[in-house]
Amino acid sequence: MGLNRFSLPVAAAIMMINASLLVQGCLEEERTALLQIKTSMFDPNYMASPLLSWGNDAHCCSWAGVSCDNITGRVNEIDLFDVRGWFIDPSMGDWYLNATLFLPFQELNTLDLGFNDIAGYVANEGFERLSRLNKLESLYLGFNNFNNSILSSLKGLSLKHLNLDYNRLKGSIDTKDFDSLSELEELDLRENEIENFVTSTGFERPGSLDKLEILDLSSNRISDSNLSFLKGLSSLKHLHLDNNQFKGSMEMKEFDSLSKLVELRLQENEIQNFATSTGFERPGSLDKLEILDLSSNRISDSNLSFLKGLSSLKQLYLYNNQLKGPMDMKG
């Protein structure tokens, strides 16, 4: 009995010491993998790269951009933002990523590869290979040169946050490419050249984006004011459609299914009016909307009756439009 009384705290102390050693020294397998990433991505001409210091000491959990779990000592976050530099000599040609370099990191939760001038991925070594990393939730690929093909390579990932802003997505996007990303909560596609979404039923297919809360499509080339592709995004709270090419009349019934929407950004378009007879007063409409930005459009009708039903509205932006004369505020 006496031995058992002391065995538990002794075992706990040993575990704490082991955990401390793991955190300080990191796992050798993961240290080796990080050095392989450095070899693959490091540009010796870019002296500001955080990778320059990798390998200077054995404790990889303290390396720039690397974070580890306090208990297991395993790498759970790798921040490689701007490690290659953006203004790379064109004569060096396009650079393609080998995503399998990240497979050793079994507890990886967040991976940031932004601002690295990545053109794509090595054949058969794309992001689909990371489907085994079931803890990977956040993937940041902004400020690169990925084209539309990147979307199909993301199948099988359990992401909650996906950023593809400032890339080279163009033209029509097939919404079925997002079908497997059923856990996604945030999708950032701003600053591309997307014109529309090819779909017959929106995101209403089983296993689609019914958990998505934030969708940023700002600064694209979306010109079709028919927003039927938004159907099925039943959890959406924040929608950014600013700085696109919406013109003339916008049919507001397309927003009816977004009953949880809190923020709607439509500024910097060329919207003239809203085609609606009853505003947002239809059942299941935007009665939770708190922020509506319609600034910098061409709205000239001072009758704001289309705002009826927005009972939760707290912020309304209408500056830099063509509103003139008396304004009927009773709407």
Rank of each mutant, 00 (worst) to 15 (best):
L189D: 02
R265N: 12
E77L: 13
S7T: 14
K308D: 03
P206A: 13
E290D: 05
C68R: 05
S249C: 12
L307T: 04
R265Y: 10
P206M: 10
L261P: 00
S218A: 15
C68S: 06
N196M: 09
F178E: 05
K155T: 15
F143N: 08
M47W: 08
R298N: 09
Q245S: 15
D188E: 10
G248P: 01
L230E: 02
D82W: 04
A58D: 12
A12I: 15
N192T: 06
G142R: 01
L292Q: 03
E191F: 15
G325V: 11
N297A: 06
V122D: 11
L154V: 07
D177K: 11
L209G: 00
F87E: 14
W86N: 11
V122W: 02
M15G: 11
F197A: 08
E191L: 13
I88Q: 06
G73T: 01
E204S: 12
G156R: 01
E185G: 07
D112L: 11
Y46H: 13
R129N: 14
N297M: 06
D328W: 06
N244R: 07
L316D: 05
L212R: 03
D165M: 12
S158C: 12
G207N: 10
N134I: 15
S296T: 08
Y166H: 13
G325F: 02
N321R: 08
Y319C: 09
L51R: 00
Y121Q: 12
L157K: 03
S62M: 07
Q272W: 05
T278V: 05
L316P: 04
L286C: 01
A275Q: 01
T278R: 00
M47D: 14
L189V: 09
E204I: 08
I150V: 15
T110V: 15
A99S: 13
S277R: 03
G156N: 01
D210S: 13
I150S: 04
V10D: 01
L169I: 09
C61A: 10
S218R: 10
M1G: 14
L187T: 02
L261D: 00
S312K: 04
K135A: 12
K330E: 13
E251L: 07
S131M: 09
V198I: 13
P104F: 04
R5Q: 14
T39I: 12
E185D: 05
L323Y: 00
L141I: 06
K247Y: 06
N244I: 03
I37G: 01
T39D: 13
K176E: 10
L164W: 02
S138A: 12
L241V: 04
Y121S: 15
S158D: 10
D94C: 11
S219Q: 12
V10S: 06
N320E: 10
G85T: 07
N269P: 00
K135R: 14
P326E: 07
A12N: 05
Q106F: 01
T199L: 07
G202D: 02
E191A: 13
Q315S: 10
G207W: 02
G55R: 02
S40Q: 13
K135F: 15
G309M: 04
S152G: 07
L34V: 10
A99Y: 02
L35Y: 03
I291S: 03
N145I: 07
K155C: 15
L130V: 08
R298L: 14
R84G: 01
F42K: 11
L266R: 03
D210M: 09
I17R: 06
N56R: 14
P90N: 00
E185W: 01
D117Y: 07
L233H: 00
G142A: 11
K314A: 09
S300W: 06
P206S: 13
N303H: 07
